[in-house]
Protein backbone atom coordinates (compact mmCIF):
# COMPACT_ATOMS: atom_id res chain seq x y z
CA UNK A 1 0.00 0.00 0.00
CA UNK A 2 2.70 2.45 -1.02
CA UNK A 3 1.37 5.89 -1.15
CA UNK A 4 2.56 9.37 -1.83
CA UNK A 5 2.23 10.36 1.76
CA UNK A 6 1.53 13.94 2.55
CA UNK A 7 1.20 15.09 -1.05
CA UNK A 8 3.06 18.30 -1.67
CA UNK A 9 1.34 21.65 -1.57
CA UNK A 10 1.29 23.13 -5.03
CA UNK A 11 4.23 25.24 -6.08
CA UNK A 12 2.48 28.59 -6.46
CA UNK A 13 0.93 28.53 -3.01
CA UNK A 14 4.27 27.60 -1.55
CA UNK A 15 6.09 30.44 -3.27
CA UNK A 16 3.36 32.93 -2.47
CA UNK A 17 3.66 32.05 1.20
CA UNK A 18 7.43 32.04 0.89
CA UNK A 19 7.89 29.00 3.06
CA UNK A 20 9.77 25.81 2.45
CA UNK A 21 7.82 22.83 1.19
CA UNK A 22 8.00 21.00 4.50
CA UNK A 23 6.43 23.65 6.69
CA UNK A 24 3.85 24.44 4.01
CA UNK A 25 2.79 20.84 4.11
CA UNK A 26 2.61 20.82 7.88
CA UNK A 27 0.56 24.03 7.81
CA UNK A 28 -1.85 22.48 5.34
CA UNK A 29 -2.38 19.46 7.53
CA UNK A 30 -2.76 21.49 10.69
CA UNK A 31 -5.41 23.67 9.08
CA UNK A 32 -7.13 20.48 8.02
CA UNK A 33 -7.17 19.17 11.57
CA UNK A 34 -8.86 22.37 12.62
CA UNK A 35 -11.14 22.75 9.61
CA UNK A 36 -12.70 19.28 9.49
CA UNK A 37 -13.78 19.13 13.15
CA UNK A 38 -15.16 22.67 12.77
CA UNK A 39 -17.26 21.68 9.76
CA UNK A 40 -18.39 18.51 11.52
CA UNK A 41 -19.34 20.52 14.60
CA UNK A 42 -21.18 23.10 12.50
CA UNK A 43 -23.16 20.50 10.56
CA UNK A 44 -24.23 18.76 13.76
CA UNK A 45 -25.43 22.06 15.23
CA UNK A 46 -27.05 23.16 11.99
CA UNK A 47 -29.03 19.97 11.45
CA UNK A 48 -29.61 19.49 15.16
CA UNK A 49 -28.38 15.91 14.84
CA UNK A 50 -29.01 13.98 18.05
CA UNK A 51 -25.84 12.75 19.78
CA UNK A 52 -27.23 9.22 19.56
CA UNK A 53 -26.73 9.37 15.78
CA UNK A 54 -23.64 11.51 15.35
CA UNK A 55 -22.09 13.27 18.31
CA UNK A 56 -20.29 16.55 17.63
CA UNK A 57 -16.50 16.71 18.12
CA UNK A 58 -17.02 18.86 21.19
CA UNK A 59 -19.26 16.19 22.71
CA UNK A 60 -16.61 13.57 21.97
CA UNK A 61 -13.84 15.67 23.49
CA UNK A 62 -15.84 16.40 26.61
CA UNK A 63 -16.75 12.71 26.94
CA UNK A 64 -13.04 11.95 26.80
CA UNK A 65 -12.18 14.66 29.32
CA UNK A 66 -14.84 13.51 31.74
CA UNK A 67 -13.27 10.12 32.25
CA UNK A 68 -9.88 10.14 30.53
CA UNK A 69 -8.61 7.19 32.52
CA UNK A 70 -11.40 4.96 31.22
CA UNK A 71 -10.22 5.56 27.66
CA UNK A 72 -6.51 5.84 28.31
CA UNK A 73 -6.34 2.51 30.16
CA UNK A 74 -7.96 0.73 27.19
CA UNK A 75 -5.80 2.62 24.73
CA UNK A 76 -2.63 1.79 26.63
CA UNK A 77 -3.46 -1.90 26.60
CA UNK A 78 -4.33 -1.91 22.89
CA UNK A 79 -1.19 0.01 21.92
CA UNK A 80 1.00 -2.29 24.00
CA UNK A 81 -0.36 -5.37 22.25
CA UNK A 82 -0.10 -3.68 18.83
CA UNK A 83 3.54 -2.78 19.42
CA UNK A 84 4.38 -6.24 20.77
CA UNK A 85 2.77 -7.88 17.72
CA UNK A 86 4.56 -5.46 15.42
CA UNK A 87 7.98 -6.17 16.93
CA UNK A 88 7.53 -9.95 16.92
CA UNK A 89 6.13 -9.87 13.36
CA UNK A 90 9.07 -7.76 12.23
CA UNK A 91 11.68 -10.11 13.67
CA UNK A 92 10.03 -13.36 12.54
CA UNK A 93 8.93 -11.98 9.18
CA UNK A 94 12.42 -10.70 8.46
CA UNK A 95 14.03 -14.02 9.38
CA UNK A 96 11.47 -15.87 7.25
CA UNK A 97 12.10 -13.56 4.29
CA UNK A 98 15.86 -14.10 4.53
CA UNK A 99 15.36 -17.89 4.76
CA UNK A 100 13.15 -17.82 1.66
CA UNK A 101 15.82 -15.91 -0.19
CA UNK A 102 18.79 -18.07 0.79
CA UNK A 103 17.35 -21.57 1.12
CA UNK A 104 16.38 -23.04 -2.22
CA UNK A 105 14.00 -25.67 -0.86
CA UNK A 106 12.04 -23.09 1.13
CA UNK A 107 11.91 -20.76 -1.86
CA UNK A 108 10.66 -23.33 -4.32
CA UNK A 109 8.35 -25.44 -2.23
CA UNK A 110 7.26 -23.58 0.91
CA UNK A 111 7.06 -20.01 -0.43
CA UNK A 112 4.31 -20.75 -3.02
CA UNK A 113 2.15 -22.15 -0.21
CA UNK A 114 2.81 -19.08 1.90
CA UNK A 115 1.89 -16.74 -0.94
CA UNK A 116 -1.41 -18.58 -1.27
CA UNK A 117 -2.00 -17.97 2.44
CA UNK A 118 -1.39 -14.23 2.00
CA UNK A 119 -4.55 -14.09 -0.14
CA UNK A 120 -6.70 -15.78 2.52
CA UNK A 121 -8.26 -13.34 4.99
CA UNK A 122 -6.40 -14.10 8.21
CA UNK A 123 -9.17 -12.61 10.34
CA UNK A 124 -11.11 -15.82 9.62
CA UNK A 125 -8.76 -17.57 12.05
CA UNK A 126 -9.85 -15.31 14.90
CA UNK A 127 -12.45 -17.72 16.39
CA UNK A 128 -10.02 -20.64 16.19
CA UNK A 129 -7.37 -18.56 17.95
CA UNK A 130 -9.90 -17.69 20.65
CA UNK A 131 -10.56 -21.41 21.16
CA UNK A 132 -6.83 -21.99 21.57
CA UNK A 133 -5.85 -19.02 23.69
CA UNK A 134 -9.06 -17.84 25.32
CA UNK A 135 -10.73 -14.46 25.42
CA UNK A 136 -7.75 -12.36 26.29
CA UNK A 137 -4.95 -10.23 25.06
CA UNK A 138 -2.93 -13.29 24.02
CA UNK A 139 -5.57 -13.98 21.34
CA UNK A 140 -5.31 -10.38 20.17
CA UNK A 141 -1.54 -10.67 20.03
CA UNK A 142 -1.71 -13.93 18.07
CA UNK A 143 -4.20 -12.61 15.50
CA UNK A 144 -2.25 -9.38 15.00
CA UNK A 145 0.95 -11.38 14.62
CA UNK A 146 -0.66 -13.66 12.05
CA UNK A 147 -1.84 -10.69 9.98
CA UNK A 148 1.26 -8.51 10.36
CA UNK A 149 3.79 -11.27 9.64
CA UNK A 150 3.12 -11.68 5.92
CA UNK A 151 3.82 -8.20 4.54
CA UNK A 152 7.21 -8.20 6.28
CA UNK A 153 8.09 -11.66 5.01
CA UNK A 154 7.04 -10.92 1.43
CA UNK A 155 8.67 -7.48 1.33
CA UNK A 156 11.94 -8.73 2.82
CA UNK A 157 12.10 -11.44 0.18
CA UNK A 158 11.16 -9.28 -2.80
CA UNK A 159 13.47 -6.55 -1.52
CA UNK A 160 16.40 -8.94 -1.37
CA UNK A 161 15.53 -10.09 -4.87
CA UNK A 162 15.62 -6.57 -6.24
CA UNK A 163 19.39 -6.29 -5.75
CA UNK A 164 21.44 -5.35 -8.77
CA UNK A 165 23.74 -8.36 -9.15
CA UNK A 166 26.50 -6.20 -10.64
CA UNK A 167 27.05 -4.62 -7.24
CA UNK A 168 27.20 -8.04 -5.65
CA UNK A 169 29.87 -9.12 -8.16
CA UNK A 170 31.85 -5.98 -7.47
CA UNK A 171 31.83 -6.47 -3.70
CA UNK A 172 32.54 -10.16 -4.09
CA UNK A 173 35.89 -9.23 -5.58
CA UNK A 174 36.83 -7.60 -2.26
CA UNK A 175 35.26 -9.98 0.19
CA UNK A 176 33.56 -13.21 -0.66
CA UNK A 177 31.80 -13.79 2.64
CA UNK A 178 28.04 -14.12 2.32
CA UNK A 179 27.43 -12.21 5.50
CA UNK A 180 29.53 -9.29 4.27
CA UNK A 181 27.63 -9.12 0.98
CA UNK A 182 24.34 -9.34 2.84
CA UNK A 183 25.29 -6.52 5.16
CA UNK A 184 26.81 -4.16 2.62
CA UNK A 185 24.75 -4.77 -0.51
CA UNK A 186 21.66 -6.88 -0.12
CA UNK A 187 20.24 -5.44 3.08
CA UNK A 188 20.57 -1.77 2.04
CA UNK A 189 19.03 -2.62 -1.33
CA UNK A 190 16.13 -4.39 0.35
CA UNK A 191 15.59 -1.64 2.90
CA UNK A 192 13.06 0.53 0.98
CA UNK A 193 10.81 -2.48 0.31
CA UNK A 194 11.22 -3.61 3.88
CA UNK A 195 10.22 -0.13 5.05
CA UNK A 196 6.94 -0.23 3.15
CA UNK A 197 6.36 -3.69 4.62
CA UNK A 198 6.91 -2.26 8.10
CA UNK A 199 4.40 0.55 7.57
CA UNK A 200 1.82 -1.88 6.22
CA UNK A 201 2.24 -4.33 9.04
CA UNK A 202 1.94 -1.58 11.64
CA UNK A 203 -1.56 -0.92 10.31
CA UNK A 204 -2.23 -4.66 10.07
CA UNK A 205 -1.25 -5.10 13.72
CA UNK A 206 -3.84 -2.51 14.66
CA UNK A 207 -6.46 -4.29 12.54
CA UNK A 208 -5.61 -7.62 14.15
CA UNK A 209 -5.75 -6.37 17.72
CA UNK A 210 -8.93 -4.36 17.23
CA UNK A 211 -10.76 -7.18 15.44
CA UNK A 212 -9.74 -9.69 18.12
CA UNK A 213 -10.98 -7.25 20.75
CA UNK A 214 -14.24 -6.83 18.82
CA UNK A 215 -14.77 -10.58 18.98
CA UNK A 216 -14.09 -11.17 22.58
CA UNK A 217 -11.84 -9.46 25.02
CA UNK A 218 -12.21 -8.21 28.51
CA UNK A 219 -10.44 -4.97 27.80
CA UNK A 220 -8.96 -2.78 25.09
CA UNK A 221 -10.36 -0.23 22.66
CA UNK A 222 -12.08 -2.78 20.41
CA UNK A 223 -13.94 -4.19 23.38
CA UNK A 224 -14.80 -0.65 24.52
CA UNK A 225 -16.27 0.16 21.09
CA UNK A 226 -18.27 -3.06 20.85
CA UNK A 227 -19.60 -2.87 24.41
CA UNK A 228 -20.60 0.76 23.85
CA UNK A 229 -22.38 -0.10 20.59
CA UNK A 230 -24.19 -3.01 22.26
CA UNK A 231 -25.56 -0.78 24.99
CA UNK A 232 -26.23 2.13 22.60
CA UNK A 233 -23.70 4.38 24.30
CA UNK A 234 -23.06 6.20 21.05
CA UNK A 235 -20.81 8.96 22.36
CA UNK A 236 -18.52 6.43 24.02
CA UNK A 237 -18.41 4.37 20.81
CA UNK A 238 -17.46 7.38 18.68
CA UNK A 239 -14.82 8.42 21.19
CA UNK A 240 -13.31 4.94 20.97
CA UNK A 241 -13.31 5.03 17.16
CA UNK A 242 -11.69 8.47 17.11
CA UNK A 243 -8.99 7.26 19.52
CA UNK A 244 -8.27 4.24 17.32
CA UNK A 245 -8.02 6.55 14.30
CA UNK A 246 -5.64 8.91 16.11
CA UNK A 247 -3.51 5.99 17.32
CA UNK A 248 -3.23 4.54 13.80
CA UNK A 249 -2.22 7.88 12.32
CA UNK A 250 0.38 8.43 15.04
CA UNK A 251 1.81 4.90 14.83
CA UNK A 252 1.88 4.92 11.02
CA UNK A 253 3.63 8.25 10.74
CA UNK A 254 6.08 7.38 13.50
CA UNK A 255 7.01 4.24 11.58
CA UNK A 256 7.27 6.24 8.36
CA UNK A 257 9.44 8.85 10.10
CA UNK A 258 11.79 6.36 11.72
CA UNK A 259 12.22 4.30 8.55
CA UNK A 260 12.85 7.41 6.45
CA UNK A 261 15.57 8.46 8.92
CA UNK A 262 17.18 5.02 8.84
CA UNK A 263 16.99 4.76 5.05
CA UNK A 264 18.24 8.31 4.59
CA UNK A 265 19.44 7.61 1.04
CA UNK A 266 15.96 6.91 -0.30
CA UNK A 267 14.23 10.27 0.14
Amino acid sequence: MKNTLLPAVDEETRQALNVDAHSARIAQYLSLFILIPLMWEASVWWNDTPAAVLPAPSTIVSAFLQEPNHYLASARLTVTVVLAAFVIATVTGFIAGVCIYYIRFVREYVYPLLTAVTVVPKVAFAPAIIIWLGLGMSSALALALLIAFFPIMVNTYTGLQSVDEDYVDMVRSYNDSRLFIFRTIRLPAAAPQLASGLKLSMIYSIVGVVVAEFLGATDGLGQLIIAASRYARTVEMFTGVVIVAVISVVLYYSTAFVTSKVIYWES
Partner: peptide
Protein backbone atom coordinates in the same frame (compact mmCIF):
# COMPACT_ATOMS: atom_id res chain seq x y z
CA UNK B 1 -5.80 5.41 3.97
CA UNK B 2 -3.93 4.94 7.23
CA UNK B 3 -6.89 4.36 9.56
CA UNK B 4 -8.13 0.75 9.54
CA UNK B 5 -11.57 1.16 7.97
CA UNK B 6 -12.89 -1.82 9.87
CA UNK B 7 -13.23 0.26 13.08
CA UNK B 8 -16.06 2.13 11.37
Amino acid sequence: FVVPKIVF
